[in-house]
Computed example of a mutant assay.
Amino acid sequence: MKSSKIVTPHHLIALASVASTGSLTAASAALGKTQPAVSAQLRQLSEAVGTPLMLRHRYGVRLSPAAETLLPYAQACVRALEGAEQAISRLRGLEEGKLRVLASTSVAVYMLPPVLAAFHARFPGIELQMTRHNANDAMSALERGEGDIAVVRGPASPVGALSSNFVIRILVKDETMLVVPPRHRLARRRKVRPEQLDGIEIVSREPGSATHALVERMAVRTKINFRLNNHQLKLVG
């Protein structure tokens, strides 16, 4: 059942701060907030998750397994906000200006909306413009000067092939999962070896996307043959 509680960037930032400092007291000081305020944010996040996030011990608190699962996303939220602040630090007193964000599809849909909402709340005078591309097109648009920053899942091209004008920062690491129908011969296997994928048809993102490039690189590295069925991701609404 989907939780009716709303998770905000403030909740995730509080979690990341407790994880990095090791205590509520230190996290509160680092965030410039009172301890009850930070405790309230963590309690709200715990209610949204439906399970405790902090486990107390004699020296302070430690993260629960659920909190450990959320932590990479919380840290990514912190890094994204820090990166956004650095990107606009040269603008006029952070009071006015425009920030053009180029984003790959999955990043634009799932990662950036809460980050940009928090950024806009903090810097309402900055006009935000986000344009969605696949990873290759986003990097090309950045090189043509059509954006100020690109946030992509990838990039599709090897890092060494990118322009030296780019400064690249890893915000978060994720996994690409193999999904098969319930009756597929690989469905009941907990682990799949590369050679077991030889000759199967794989539905993948279109050429130019980071996912497509990842599949192609794996095929070359493992010397197996995929039959790629390329699909362009279309969003409705």
Rank of each mutant, 00 (worst) to 15 (best):
L94D: 08
A40D: 03
H212M: 05
K33E: 11
S23N: 13
L63S: 06
Q86G: 05
V159F: 06
L112S: 02
D137Q: 15
Q129V: 13
L63N: 02
V107P: 03
V7N: 03
R190K: 12
E96I: 08
E175A: 10
G50V: 09
L112I: 06
N134R: 03
D174S: 13
L71S: 02
V215C: 08
L116E: 04
S4E: 09
T25Y: 15
G147M: 03
A213G: 08
L91R: 07
S163G: 10
Q35D: 10
V115P: 02
M1R: 07
M218K: 03
A27L: 12
L45Q: 01
G147W: 07
A219D: 05
P113F: 11
K5G: 03
A74F: 01
H120Y: 10
K191C: 09
V38K: 02
A118I: 04
E68S: 07
Q44S: 06
R169F: 00
A156C: 09
M111W: 14
K223E: 12
L233T: 14
S46T: 03
R92W: 12
G32P: 04
R193G: 08
I13K: 09
A213F: 05
L171M: 08
L94P: 10
G60I: 07
A118C: 08
G199K: 12
L171I: 13
L24S: 08
K223R: 14
R227G: 03
Q41N: 03
S3H: 04
R190Q: 13
S204C: 15
K234T: 15
K98A: 11
N136M: 12
T131D: 11
S23W: 12
A26H: 09
E146L: 12
L42G: 00
R169L: 01
Q44R: 09
V38F: 01
A161K: 04
T211M: 11
H212F: 11
R79K: 01
A26M: 12
A14L: 09
P181I: 03
H133Y: 15
F226W: 11
R217D: 09
H57R: 10
Q44C: 00
A156I: 06
L102N: 04
A67E: 01
S140M: 11
P181E: 02
V159K: 09
A135P: 01
L235S: 13
H10Y: 01
A84I: 02
I168M: 06
R56F: 04
G93Q: 09
L197P: 12
